[in-house]
């Protein structure tokens, strides 16, 4: 079992390193670089040499990785020129993490909705995050306006103000995150399918015949873990869109700004953080499955 857990850990580390490598290679293959901004080719060569840009890509990739591993994510060029990336992303990351933590119970609840609501979940969930968020914002604003017109509410703009951490707004954002772009529909479908397979299994039938306990919480958790952790990349992608529409100054917001401003050190650092989050959550989920399921404890 220890070997199996170590293998999982190695896999997670490999995923993060691989993601860093892919990001860097993708950036380096693009034409043009910082030194090309200088008109004189001789000066550009000198600058390239000084900045280490003339070394082969793999060398620079591992150099960057080594820096990242020691906690140095680089410097923001454009979003907040000169500021260390780590300082820039700290606060936004916390805000986004808060959103994700709130979205988790919503996702669990969605996955356990009864069968007759399934088609509705799939239909609503087919709305892309931007459209769902847009409709929610518009709907909330319209109802706030109606409430103010009727005199029930006297604080205009309680919802639409940017940067205000209003609990209603945060809750709505979490729901949109857990539902939109098929996240909710896929969760529900996958869970329903897994639950049906469990109920139809021979050992559940035997338990019913023999009046012994059937599939219990361990089976349910084993089924739910990969379903929930598998949706995480989609949810993280949804964060970028959601934060733009809901005007939340989170990691997705910063990533968007960095991409618009071609602030690559910042954008790549956030891409790497996303990969690391996915790898870590997958590692935790898979390790929990290894602990619970004796079949997974042996190396293949």
């Amino acid at each position: 079992m220890t070997l199996r857990l170590l293998a999982q850990l190695a896999r997670a580390l490999g995923t993060v390193l691989g993601a860093a490598f892919l990001l860097l290679v993708g950036l380096e293959l693009a034409p043009g670089g910082p030194a090309d901004l200088v008109a004189d080719p001789a000066v550009a060569d000198v600058l390239s040499a000084r900045w280490g840009l003339d070394r082969p890509i793999p060398v620079r990739a591992f150099d960057w990785l080594a820096r990242v591993l020691t906690g140095d994510l680089g410097t923001s060029w454009a979003y907040r020129p000169g500021a260390p990336v780590w300082e820039v992303v700290q606060g936004p990351l916390q805000r986004t993490a808060g959103l994700l933590v709130l979205a988790f119970p919503v996702a669990v609840m969605l996955a356990s909705l009864p069968r007759r609501l399934g088609s509705l979940v799939v239909l609503v969930s087919a709305l892309p995050v931007f459209l769902l968020a847009h409709l929610v914002v518009e709907g909330a604003n319209a109802s706030a306006w109606a409430a103010m017109s009727a005199g029930w509410l006297d604080r205009p703009g309680w919802f639409a103000l940017p940067g205000v951490d209003h609990p209603v707004r945060t809750a709505l954002a979490a729901v949109v995150l857990a539902v939109g772009s098929n996240v909710g529909g896929d969760l529900w479908t996958d869970m329903q399918r897994a639950r049906d397979a469990l109920q139809r299994s021979d050992f559940a039938a035997v338990a019913r015949v023999h009046d012994t306990p059937g599939p219990g919480w361990k089976h349910a958790v084993l089924v739910a873990l990969p379903v929930l952790s598998g949706r995480l990349p989609m949810v993280l992608g949804g964060c970028v869109v959601l934060e733009r529409v809901f005007l939340v100054n989170g990691a997705g917001w910063v990533l968007w700004e960095a991409a618009m401003a071609r602030d690559f050190e910042l954008a790549m650092a956030l891409g790497l953080v996303a990969a690391a989050v996915v790898a870590t959550v997958t590692l935790v989920a898979e390790s929990a499955r290894v602990l619970l399921d004796p079949r997974l404890r042996e190396l293949p």
């Binding site: 691989g18 970028v240 618009m260 690559f264 790549m268 990969a275 996915v278």
Partner: peptide, 20 residues
């Protein structure tokens, strides 16, 4: 390789690619 591709959210990939 596909594991690494899948670890970075799809939307982030596309955003970075368009930016670069």
């Amino acid at each position: 390789v596909t594991g690494v591709l899948g670890a970075i959210p799809r939307f982030v990939w596309v955003l970075l690619a368009l930016s670069v």
